[in-house]
């Protein structure tokens, strides 16, 4: 019974898509990205539907049959008006898509370069094949990242060896972690919960195992946790 339930729920999962992590955002950045995903998808469905309708229509209507098989179709070079139509309409469609693209790309980049006053700073070090997180008070954690809700977090990303990529699908991202130069990423989680984090850039043998848990706590809980960890190392 449990098995049937599992299979059914998997089928539903395929059909729905609303549980997909990228489309279930838990920060403003991820929400913006999720919006772009859905907006571009909707626009593109117009194109896709147009092509499919014409495709099915033409293939069906103009197929060779027993009656018409000796006919020679009329010669036709092209049609200026039609060709202008399918040049101009896509340009308009893409212009509509370009506006939010530019806006949100700039917003995400701008928020990564400025430092908000109440930000939490976390030094992230990637190495083959694990993540280390160092907090401002000296607490160091491996493979587990704890974040406060509703406060901007500035990640200072550094790599000890090859290129990695920092990715928490539900919080947005991702940002490559490149040896030799620090990179920054700012995210503001807005919901308490536990989210998956992964290395997204292929980095060698156990790239698949280079994961971490992201735990978002209320600001109160976060403070307590940080103090508890601090006491532990002292």
């Amino acid at each position: 019974m449990r098995k049937i339930y599992m299979i059914l729920s998997s089928v539903l999962l395929i059909l729905s898509g609303c549980n997909l992590r990228v489309l279930d955002p838990k920060s403003q950045t991820a929400k913006d990205q999720s919006f772009l995903v859905q907006f571009s998808f909707a626009l593109m469905m117009i194109v896709f539907a147009t092509v499919i309708v014409l495709f099915v229509w033409f293939v069906w209507k103009y197929r060779q049959t027993e009656e018409n098989k000796h006919k020679i179709p009329e010669d036709e070079k092209g049609n200026r008006l039609f060709e202008i139509t399918w040049t101009v309409l896509p340009i308009i469609l893409l212009a509509v898509l370009a506006v939010p693209t530019i806006k949100i790309t700039y917003e995400i980049s701008a928020s990564s370069s400025a430092t908000p006053p109440n930000a939490v700073h976390i030094d992230v070090t990637a190495q083959q094949f694990s993540w280390t997180f160092e907090y401002q008070n000296g607490v160091v954690q491996t493979s587990e990242l704890v974040l406060p809700k509703d406060r901007p977090v500035v990640f200072h990303l550094n790599s000890d060896d090859v290129i990695h990529s920092f990715w928490v699908p539900k919080l947005g991202g991702k940002k490559d972690v490149i040896p030799g130069k620090e990179r920054r990423l700012i995210l503001t989680p807005d919901e308490v919960g536990t989210y998956q984090g992964k290395c997204a850039e292929f980095c060698g043998k156990d790239h698949a195992l280079m994961r971490f848990e992201t735990i978002v706590k209320t600001q109160e809980d976060y403070k307590q946790w940080l103090q508890k960890m601090k006491q532990k190392i002292e």
Partner: peptide, 29 residues
Amino acid sequence: AITTMLIAVPTGIKIFNWLFTMRKGLIRF
């Protein structure tokens, strides 16, 4: 991002031209 989007335009032209090559033709499968 913009230059990448632009590639969709000539590609789209080709797709529609192929569709309209078939239109009024005699399609053999």
